[in-house]
Structure formats: structure tokens, C-alpha cells
């Protein structure tokens, strides 16, 4: 179902943190289409996290530009950028859920971007929003824990809540910043499987940082590898040879 039109483009994107001598992200140009499942590889400090965070504007580019759905981030003010983010669901390594709130309440926060401040504060959700929240909790198989506080869940279950929150945004894009790095291998695989299934069902663009090469090879339709902030590999998983892997992770 993929169409050839670019959904998300980063052009000559560079990030240089204050007082840093080198670029964290060094003039990267990439084009992503709907339906692609992209895994970003690279060792710690290669710029993976910085890269993912630039895609939804959590991290501003110091040079270059990003275009999403035909709109350039350079032309957007803070409010415009906020609207762009509404359709980009993000999953974090440490899930970043709101403690002391329940599974359902956390999923509701995924709807915040598209609703009025008053309705958000009052916690007023209409029938279709309530249904949507239940549906996404069901899709991540947490319906039995719907009204349980998230701090009482296991690591894998919390990450599922994180995914459900992103799903509640009805996203076109899934962004993942090392979403399975803190999980055991079995749980990590199941979470990846879940993300991949949802990706297929909804025909999303998915861009995920991962440090487990095996997981990337199993699920990705395209692998991009970063080294010292630069793109050093961009191809199908089959093209990733052992020699390239060694080059990526050598110190």
C-alpha cells in the first residue's frame, strides 16, 4: 500500500549542542515514505537519539530543515510545530508515563494535542474518544489492567501503555527512541512484534532507534546506520554485512 510520495524528509539536518566541538547530527539527508519500517542503528553517542528527536521537533535543528506532510519546520512557529506533533506518536526508552495515573488516564493524555484546554483539564471525553482509548488499550492487550495505576505494572506492560498512548494520537508516524533497550530479550521481541503489527495494520511510517542488530534485521524494511552523526549505511536489511556491522560498532 506504500505510495512513493515522501511523508517525512530531513534535508542537510545538523545539530550542534552548545559548547560542543563537533556535530551531534552531521548534515543528514534522508527521505521517508509511508509504509516504511526504518530501524536506526549505531553505537551509543552516534546521534541516534538526537536524530529521532529532531523528527518531531523535540530537538531543533541548528542547520538544515525537516519537511513533514509537505510543511517545512522552518516556517512553523511553536504552535504550528505542536500541531505537527499531534500525528507523530513517540515511544520512549523509559516509557515516560505519568506516574500515579491509571492505564486509561495515561492513554487519554495521548489525545491532549487535539482538544481544548478546558476539556483536557476537566477530563471530559466524548463517546468516540472513550471508545478510541479502550480500543487502543485492547490492541496492546492491556484491557484487564485498564484502571490499574501504571506504576504497578511491569516494564513490558508499561511500554505497552506507552504504545497505546502513541496510538491514541491516531498517528501517521511512529517514532521510537530505544523503546526496548531496558527490556529483557523476550519482552523486547514481543514489543517489537506488537509495534510491527500495528505498523502494518495502520500503514504507518515507523522510525525506531535500536541497538539490537538482530531485532533490526528481523523487523526493518530499511536500515539506516549512523556513525559520529553521519549516515554511513542506508539500505535494505539484507545488505547489512558483518563487515559493516564491525565498522559501526568499532571504537
Amino acid at each position: 500500500m506504500s505510495c512513493n510520495e515522501a511523508l517525512l524528509t530531513i534535508e542537510n539536518g545538523a545539530v550542534r549542542y552548545q559548547k560542543a566541538e563537533s556535530y551531534a547530527l552531521d548534515h543528514v539527508t534522508l527521505t521517508f515514505q509511508r509504509g516504511e519500517f526504518v530501524c536506526i542503528l549505531g553505537k551509543t553517542g552516534a546521534g541516534k537519539s538526537t536524530f529521532i528527536r529532531t523528527l518531531n521537533g523535540l530537538q531543533a535543528l541548528t542547520e538544515g530543515d525537516i519537511t513533514y506532510n509537505g510543511r517545512s519546520y522552518q516556517t512553523l512557529d511553536r504552535e504550528g510545530l505542536r500541531r505537527q506533533r499531534q500525528k507523530m506518536g513517540m515511544i520512549f526508552q523509559h516509557h515516560q508515563l505519568i506516574p500515579r495515573l491509571t492505564v486509561l488516564q495515561n492513554v487519554y493524555t495521548g489525545l491532549f494535542g487535539s482538544r481544548s484546554t478546558i476539556r483536557n483539564i476537566a477530563g471530559l471525553f466524548n463517546e468516540s474518544e472513550r471508545q478510541l482509548a479502550r480500543d487502543v488499550v485492547e490492541q496492546v492487550e492491556l484491557l484487564p489492567h485498564l484502571n490499574k495505576r501504571v506504576d504497578l505494572l511491569s516494564g513490558g506492560q508499561r511500554q505497552r501503555v506507552g504504545i497505546a498512548r502513541a496510538l491514541a494520537q491516531s498517528p501517521d508516524v511512529f517514532l521510537g527512541d530505544e523503546p526496548v533497550a531496558s527490556l529483557d530479550p523476550g519482552t523486547a521481541n514481543r514489543i517489537f512484534q506488537l509495534i510491527h503489527r500495528l505498523h502494518e495494520e495502520r500503514n504507518l511510517l515507523t522510525v525506531i532507534n535500536v541497538h539490537d542488530v538482530k531485532l533490526a534485521k528481523r523487523y526493518a524494511s530499511r536500515i539506516v546506520a549512523l556513525k559520529d552523526g553521519r549516515v554511513v549505511f542506508d539500505d535494505q536489511p539484507e545488505a547489512l554485512t558483518e563487515a559493516i556491522e564491525d565498522m559501526l560498532y568499532e571504537s
Binding site: 505542536r82 506533533r85 499531534q86 520512549f92 505519568i98 500515579r100 491532549f112 483539564i121 498512548r165
Partner: peptide, 23 residues
């Protein structure tokens, strides 16, 4: 973390601060 997550879902800054901090 939760403050960043609220930013990422596109919540307005006030809502983000209220919900990510006060609970």
C-alpha cells in the same frame, strides 16, 4: 520524562506542565 512525553503528544505547555508534574 513525562514532561517531554506531553510535549511529544502535542499538548499545550500549560496542560503539559499540569499533567506531567502535578500527579
Amino acid at each position: 520524562g513525562p514532561q517531554e512525553a506531553m510535549k511529544a503528544v502535542g499538548a499545550r505547555p500549560l496542560i503539559g506542565a499540569l499533567f506531567s508534574v502535578f500527579p
